[in-house]
Amino acid sequence: MNIKKFDTKTLDLILQKMIDTVGTSKNEIFRISEQCRTDHESLTDELKEVKRMVLKVIDEGDKLEVQTRFARKRLSEVSMHFKDYTEAEVRDAYEKAHQLQMDLSMNRQLERQFRERRDDIERRLLGLNETIERAETLVSQITVVMNYLMGDLKQMGEIIEDAKLKLDFGLKIIEAQEEERKKLSREIHDGPAQMMANVMMRSDLIERVYKERGGDQALSEIKDLKKMVRSALYEVRRIIYDLRPMALDDLGLVPTLKKYLQTIEEYHSTTKIKFANLGLETRLPAQYEVALFRLIQESVTNALKHSESSEIVVKLEINKNRVAAVIKDDGKGFNIQEKKAESFGIIGMRERVELLEGQLSIDSKIGKGTIIIIQIPLTL
């Protein structure tokens, strides 16, 4: 079978054209997004004014309706006792009733116009919101594609033998990069970034407290600041562990788990975490160590977040035939029979176990905690 090889220069030229095209598309989408934002702000201001006018017209209409009823009553009285009133009084009664009726009719028409304009603006705002969200998603996706094209693909010096494999490989990398970057960005923004902003604010406050109230009060504020810094440090360490704990490569699974569980126990003083290694303390292939660490990490994190447990027990057993891990908590548990969409965490755990041809079982009852059992076949 003849295998055609790509000219690397030609491939680089194709990649550059793709990058230029993608960059132009990204800029165009960004401009559309910014225009939509401008229109959204303008329509929001107009909507506020229209809503104010609707309320004003309704209030005026209510007053006109009361006046019209009185005018009709007056006109009815004049009509019934026509001979008792002068010609001028009769004419005045007719003209007032007619004018008020015309004013009320115009008021109702104006109210209807304002309401229609309000509804139209609200529909347009919904459409703009959807456009802005889609544009942001597209910009994010295009950024990932550009990073991929400018980085990973350019570094591939080997000739790509199979175009389909290349496509599948590229799509998987893009999906994984996008998900990881979104997750990391969200965690840094919601965690350390917010905490460090608060630290800056508190440091300014401490300086002012020291000047105005003295050292004792400032020392109290410093203690609170120390707690915030400690929490920020924990979040940074947790994010590093989520990315990839460095000790896993250097020391292996068991020591890394011990250290990790000790660390998170320190920052969750209300929950006791126990770890027991019942089997061999030996190194495993890298993919097994990473997968098992992630599975146990996800299980413990879920227990800390949701179970309200006072104790979490982690047991690990490694032998020549398999690896088994048990994560048990004494928390509130949940009804496993209840039909719910699985969380992304549990879905990810199942996928990791299936990739290693293992089994994952979850047993939980309301008020009786949760047990997670992970079993993976192994040949050492």
Rank of each mutant, 00 (worst) to 15 (best):
residue 156 M to C: 13
residue 109 Q to S: 15
residue 131 T to F: 13
residue 120 D to T: 03
residue 155 Q to F: 03
residue 142 I to Y: 03
residue 135 A to V: 00
residue 132 I to E: 01
residue 166 K to H: 13
residue 129 N to T: 11
residue 104 L to N: 09
residue 128 L to C: 03
residue 172 K to G: 14
residue 114 F to D: 02
residue 105 S to Q: 12
residue 157 G to S: 14
residue 128 L to A: 03
residue 158 E to M: 13
residue 155 Q to T: 09
residue 150 M to D: 03
residue 114 F to L: 07
residue 160 I to L: 07
residue 110 L to Y: 10
residue 142 I to C: 06
residue 114 F to M: 06
residue 119 D to L: 04
residue 164 K to Q: 08
residue 115 R to H: 05
residue 150 M to C: 02
residue 142 I to G: 05
residue 144 V to Q: 03
residue 122 E to M: 12
residue 138 L to V: 10
residue 150 M to W: 01
residue 171 L to T: 15
residue 170 G to N: 05
residue 116 E to F: 09
residue 118 R to Q: 10
residue 126 L to E: 15
residue 106 M to P: 10
residue 141 Q to P: 10
residue 148 Y to T: 05
residue 148 Y to G: 01
residue 144 V to W: 01
residue 129 N to D: 14
residue 158 E to N: 09
residue 172 K to R: 14
residue 154 K to S: 02
residue 151 G to A: 01
residue 141 Q to V: 09
residue 103 D to T: 04
residue 160 I to W: 02
residue 134 R to W: 09
residue 116 E to Q: 07
residue 161 E to A: 08
residue 158 E to G: 07
residue 168 D to Q: 12
residue 137 T to Y: 10
residue 128 L to G: 00
residue 131 T to Q: 15
residue 164 K to D: 09
residue 113 Q to V: 14
residue 142 I to D: 05
residue 146 M to A: 04
residue 152 D to C: 05
residue 112 R to W: 05
residue 167 L to I: 14
residue 163 A to M: 10
residue 172 K to T: 12
residue 110 L to D: 13
residue 120 D to I: 04
residue 109 Q to K: 15
residue 144 V to Y: 01
residue 125 L to Y: 01
residue 121 I to W: 00
residue 172 K to P: 06
residue 147 N to G: 08
residue 116 E to D: 11
residue 143 T to D: 14
residue 117 R to T: 02
residue 127 G to E: 04
residue 146 M to F: 02
residue 118 R to L: 04
residue 126 L to M: 13
residue 163 A to P: 13
residue 113 Q to M: 13
residue 156 M to G: 10
residue 139 V to F: 04
residue 116 E to G: 05
residue 172 K to E: 11
residue 131 T to W: 11
residue 125 L to N: 05
residue 172 K to L: 13
residue 133 E to P: 07
residue 133 E to A: 15
residue 123 R to P: 04
residue 124 R to W: 01
residue 153 L to T: 01
residue 161 E to F: 14
residue 110 L to C: 11
residue 139 V to A: 03
residue 173 I to D: 00
residue 123 R to A: 07
residue 163 A to D: 09
residue 125 L to S: 00
residue 107 N to P: 08
residue 165 L to W: 10
residue 144 V to N: 05
residue 131 T to A: 15
residue 147 N to E: 11
residue 115 R to T: 04
residue 125 L to V: 06
residue 104 L to M: 13
residue 134 R to G: 04
residue 173 I to Y: 00
residue 121 I to V: 03
residue 140 S to K: 09
residue 169 F to S: 07
residue 164 K to Y: 06
residue 103 D to K: 10
residue 172 K to M: 12
residue 117 R to E: 05
residue 142 I to W: 02
residue 159 I to K: 13
residue 144 V to T: 11
residue 148 Y to R: 01
residue 129 N to Y: 04
residue 134 R to T: 02
residue 111 E to N: 06
residue 108 R to P: 04
residue 123 R to T: 07
residue 108 R to F: 12
residue 156 M to W: 08
residue 170 G to I: 01
residue 163 A to C: 08
residue 157 G to E: 13
residue 120 D to P: 01
residue 147 N to C: 05
residue 155 Q to H: 09
residue 109 Q to P: 15
residue 159 I to Y: 11
residue 157 G to N: 14
residue 147 N to H: 09
residue 136 E to V: 12
residue 166 K to F: 08
residue 138 L to F: 06
residue 132 I to Y: 00
residue 129 N to S: 15
